[in-house]
C-alpha cells in the first residue's frame, strides 16, 4: 500500500491527521492521556506494592516499643536513630537480628564502656526482659537471625553426639578458643574469649551471628543440629569433665607446664639439695 492510494477509511484518516488540529485540543488531549496513564500506574502500584501501609514509623509490638525506649536511652548515641548506625562510632543494626542483640546485651558487651579493639564480657546492664525487648525491637526493625526456641543441646541418649560435637569444635572453634575453650589471642589486642561463662543461648547466638571478630557460622556451614552438638560438647565435656590428671594448670598447655616445672619441681629440689648439703 502506498500513500498515493485515494479513497478508503485509512486514506481518510490519514488525511484528517495531516490536517493541523487546534492547539487547545492538542494540549487537552495530552493532559487527559497523561492523567489516565498516571492513574493506571498508581492504581496498579497500590494493588501490587508490598508496603501498602509503608510508613516512617512502623507499627511496633508492645515489647518492641519498650525496646525502642531502652534503645533511645542507651544505644542511640552510637547506633543512631532507628539503629541506622553512626559513622565511626557504631554500625547499623538493620538486619543483625534478635540473636545478635541477645548475645551482645546478655553478655554485657553492649553497651560498650569505650571504643577499643574488642568489647569485653562484663556484667550485663539489662535484665532478661529488657534484653528480650531490645532484641524484639531490632528484630522488628530490620529482621535477621533469631535463636530457635527450646533446648539447644543435642538430644539425650545420642551417645556419639558429644563426640561429633568435639570433632566439630576442634575443626571450627579450637583454632581461636583453644582446645580447652579458654580462649586465645588474636592480632592487635583482639582475642577469642574464654567460653567458661557462656550459656547455651549465647553459644548458639555467637555461632549464628559472629559477634566481634568471630566469623559467622550460618546454618549452611553448621546445621542447627551440629551447633547443638558443639554446645553439648562445650557444656558437658569441656566444662563438666573434671581434669582426670589433677589440677589442669589452667589448661594452657606447655606454657604453664614449663612454668610449673621451674616454680614447683626445680624449686622444691633445690631446697632439698640445700637441706641435704646443710646436714653434713
Amino acid at each position: 500500500m502506498t500513500s498515493d492510494t485515494p479513497g478508503g477509511l485509512l486514506a481518510r484518516l490519514r488525511r484528517r491527521r495531516s490536517q493541523p488540529r487546534s492547539r487547545v485540543r492538542r494540549r487537552l488531549g495530552t493532559v487527559v492521556r497523561l492523567t489516565i496513564a498516571l492513574t493506571l500506574a498508581g492504581g496498579v502500584y497500590t494493588v501490587f506494592a508490598p508496603g501498602l501501609s509503608a510508613d516512617d514509623t512502623p507499627q511496633l509490638s508492645t515489647a518492641a516499643q519498650e525496646g525502642k525506649a531502652l534503645f533511645d536511652e542507651s544505644c542511640i548515641s552510637c547506633h543512631g536513630r532507628n539503629a541506622q548506625g553512626v559513622e565511626g562510632r557504631g554500625p547499623s543494626l538493620i538486619g543483625v537480628g534478635a540473636a545478635a542483640v541477645e548475645f551482645q546485651v546478655s553478655t554485657g558487651r553492649m553497651p560498650m564502656a569505650r571504643q577499643e579493639a574488642q568489647a569485653p564480657r562484663k556484667p550485663a546492664m539489662f535484665n532478661d526482659d529488657q534484653t528480650r525487648q531490645l532484641a524484639q525491637y531490632i528484630q522488628e526493625l530490620g529482621g535477621g537471625p533469631q535463636i530457635p526456641d527450646g533446648d539447644l543441646r543435642a538430644p539425650e541418649g545420642d551417645d556419639e553426639a558429644i563426640a561429633r560435637g568435639g570433632n566439630l569444635f576442634r575443626i571450627n572453634c579450637s583454632s581461636c578458643h583453644a582446645f580447652g575453650g579458654g580462649g586465645g589471642a588474636l592480632s592487635s589486642g583482639k582475642y577469642a574469649p574464654d567460653l567458661k561463662e557462656a550459656t547455651d543461648r549465647q553459644l548458639y547466638a555467637a555461632m549464628l551471628t559472629g559477634p566481634q571478630n568471630m566469623p559467622v557460622f550460618g546454618d549452611n556451614q553448621l546445621t542447627p543440629e551440629q551447633k547443638k552438638e558443639i554446645i553439648s560438647y562445650v557444656q558437658e565435656a569441656l566444662k563438666q569433665d573434671k581434669d582426670p590428671g589433677g589440677w589442669g594448670l589452667g589448661r594452657f598447655g606447655p606454657v604453664t607446664e614449663g612454668l610449673a616445672i621451674f616454680l614447683v619441681g626445680i624449686v622444691a629440689l633445690v631446697f632439698a639439695a640445700l637441706w641435704i648439703a646443710g646436714k653434713s
Binding site: 583454632s175 606454657v255 614449663g258
Partner: peptide
C-alpha cells in the same frame, strides 16, 4: 591436618 588449637606450644 585441619585441626590446630590456639596456644599450640612445644615443651619449654
Amino acid at each position: 591436618a585441619y585441626t590446630v588449637s590456639a596456644a599450640s606450644q612445644p615443651d619449654w
